[in-house]
Amino acid sequence: MEAFRSHTGVGIPLRRSNVDTDQIIPAVYLKRITRTGFEDGLFAAWRKDPSFILNQPAFAGGSVLVAGPDFGTGSSREHAVWALMDYGIKVVLSPRFADIFRGNSSKAGLVAGQISQDDAELLFKLLENEPGTEVTVDLEARTATAGTLVISFDIDDYARWRLLEGWDDISLTLRHAERIDEFETTRPSFLPTTTAR
């Protein structure tokens, strides 16, 4: 997983609350066998509407999504995070995230920053009034800056540390690679292998 220090990209104001994972990516896209390529499933139903925010040229290539409260509720599908990241979203800012979604985000490398409802409103207004405004997200300082507006966001220490260091679950475990090597040398010889006999 890539380490995340700071990121600057066009902010996308998604003025909706309760954006559940079925909206983020419908179940029909879960049949796939790959770990990537889910960008076409992102907000699939809403994107059929030409006026949907992602279909507006000013927000094309946007990478900082600002959403209303309770983002990522519903099904635990990890594909929701994959779809956002495959599309190019690096950061989601929302007044409240569903627990499982927040956990899945930090595992996959997506920054899910919690902001106050008032700050969300300020960001929405700014991004709507000046489409194409860039937002700089500084994970170290836990701040998001858009024009003259500087707001702070919350992210738990463990998730922040993982993102700053670029630790996914597997790299976290592989910090103990020597212990695994050591353990392997102590395994009894009678244990089976799957090698053809």
Binding site: I33, R35, L191, P192
Partner: peptide
């Protein structure tokens, strides 16, 4: 706790994304 796994059985339904993840990370 980090536990060692003695045997890992694999079938076609739940493994594709796992292998793809390895490929992405070069593992």
């Amino acid at each position: 706790d980090l536990l060692f796994i003695d045997l890992h059985l694999v079938h076609e339904v739940t493994s594709p994304q796992a292998f793809d993840g390895l490929r992405l990370a070069g593992r």
